[in-house]
Computed example of a mutant assay.
Amino acid sequence: MSTTKSLFSPASGQGPFDLGQAERQLALEYLAEAWNEAEEDGVETAALAHASLFAALATFVRQHGDEATADLVAQLPDRIRSGEYNLDRILQ
């Protein structure tokens, strides 16, 4: 894996997942590397975001079904508004 700083590196220096979720952190690092390479190849950030959301939701539907995925997505507005996906916020 390359050592370039990814879009997903939080400003606080802390990882987005606790130590008990090391596999998710590793997965995020792989995705960040692919994202960075795609950007270097000229793929627009919005296109990457759209494709990533589609792939993630399609995977959730396949693994957990339509209803469970819809329930997960229904929780997103509150989580977004609370700053859970804001990479610029500093965790104390």
Rank of each mutant, 00 (worst) to 15 (best):
L87E: 10
T3I: 09
E23R: 04
A70C: 11
P10K: 05
H50V: 05
E44H: 15
A34C: 11
Y85T: 06
G13R: 02
A47Q: 14
L48S: 05
E40W: 05
L72Q: 09
T59E: 00
T45K: 15
F54M: 07
R89T: 04
A68I: 08
L76R: 10
V61R: 01
R89S: 02
D66R: 11
T3N: 14
R62C: 09
E39D: 09
L7K: 15
K5G: 13
L72W: 03
D78E: 15
L72P: 01
S6T: 14
E23S: 03
E33F: 00
N86I: 09
A32L: 06
G83M: 00
E84F: 08
S82V: 00
A34K: 10
Q14M: 14
G20P: 02
S2H: 14
I90H: 11
A49T: 15
S52Y: 06
R89F: 04
Q14R: 15
L7Q: 14
S82G: 03
Q25T: 03
A38V: 03
Q21G: 10
N86R: 13
A11Y: 07
A56D: 01
F54R: 10
A46Y: 07
L53R: 00
P77Q: 13
G15I: 01
Q14P: 10
T45H: 15
Y30R: 11
S9K: 07
